[in-house]
Simulated scan of single mutants.
Amino acid sequence: MRPVNKIIIHCSATPEGRDYTVAQIRDWHVKGNGWKDIGYHFVIYRDGTVHAGRDINQIGAHTTGQNTGSIGICYVGGLAADGKTPKDTRTDAQKKALRALVDRLCQQYGINRRQVYGHNEFAAKACPCFDVKKEFRV
């Protein structure tokens, strides 16, 4: 097992109300970026189901300079229906699933809640389009 000390939360930057799969995101990352796999370790669908992405024992490709020692979680959504405007589009099911997944991973890896971040804390992006610090590090 690789050492893990933080969790970084992302959105898929896709329009609200539309479903996307791990396979589609993997395709974007492999074909569009030339990566060997999907960048995230977990993807949360709009119905709240949690799906495995990149193997948890492999370093992710989700946050420049922060991939070693981190777990990347992505929820499907993050843009308004126009496909351009950042927006917290998480469904209630996604919020509940994200909370449960973060809790489980923090316990499993001994991660302090202060080590749960949004992608926007490491890059000039809106992603994940909600205040991770307010929701998870309080």
Results as ranks from 00 to 15, higher is better:
residue 4 V to L: 04
residue 7 I to P: 01
residue 9 I to E: 08
residue 10 H to G: 06
residue 11 C to L: 04
residue 14 T to I: 10
residue 17 G to T: 10
residue 19 D to F: 02
residue 19 D to T: 07
residue 21 T to E: 06
residue 26 R to G: 03
residue 27 D to E: 13
residue 29 H to Q: 10
residue 29 H to R: 06
residue 30 V to M: 03
residue 30 V to R: 02
residue 31 K to G: 00
residue 32 G to C: 05
residue 34 G to H: 03
residue 35 W to K: 09
residue 35 W to T: 10
residue 36 K to W: 04
residue 36 K to R: 11
residue 36 K to A: 13
residue 39 G to T: 05
residue 39 G to W: 01
residue 40 Y to L: 07
residue 42 F to S: 05
residue 44 I to N: 00
residue 45 Y to H: 13
residue 45 Y to E: 11
residue 49 T to E: 08
residue 51 H to F: 00
residue 51 H to D: 02
residue 52 A to M: 12
residue 52 A to E: 15
residue 54 R to E: 03
residue 57 N to K: 02
residue 60 G to M: 02
residue 63 T to S: 09
residue 65 G to W: 00
residue 67 N to G: 00
residue 69 G to T: 01
residue 70 S to R: 01
residue 71 I to R: 01
residue 73 I to H: 07
residue 73 I to D: 09
residue 74 C to P: 03
residue 81 A to L: 08
residue 83 G to N: 09
residue 84 K to G: 00
residue 85 T to I: 07
residue 85 T to L: 05
residue 85 T to A: 06
residue 86 P to W: 08
residue 87 K to E: 08
residue 88 D to Y: 05
residue 88 D to A: 02
residue 88 D to V: 04
residue 89 T to K: 01
residue 93 A to Q: 11
residue 95 K to A: 08
residue 97 A to P: 01
residue 97 A to I: 12
residue 98 L to R: 08
residue 98 L to A: 14
residue 99 R to Q: 15
residue 100 A to I: 07
residue 101 L to I: 15
residue 102 V to T: 13
residue 102 V to I: 15
residue 102 V to R: 03
residue 104 R to E: 15
residue 105 L to A: 08
residue 107 Q to G: 14
residue 109 Y to E: 11
residue 113 R to C: 03
residue 114 R to E: 11
residue 115 Q to F: 05
residue 116 V to L: 05
residue 117 Y to K: 07
residue 118 G to S: 11
residue 119 H to Y: 12
residue 121 E to Y: 12
residue 121 E to C: 13
residue 121 E to K: 09
residue 122 F to N: 13
residue 124 A to D: 15
residue 126 A to S: 15
residue 127 C to H: 09
residue 127 C to M: 12
residue 129 C to E: 11
residue 131 D to P: 15
residue 131 D to F: 08
residue 133 K to L: 07
residue 135 E to V: 01
residue 137 R to I: 04
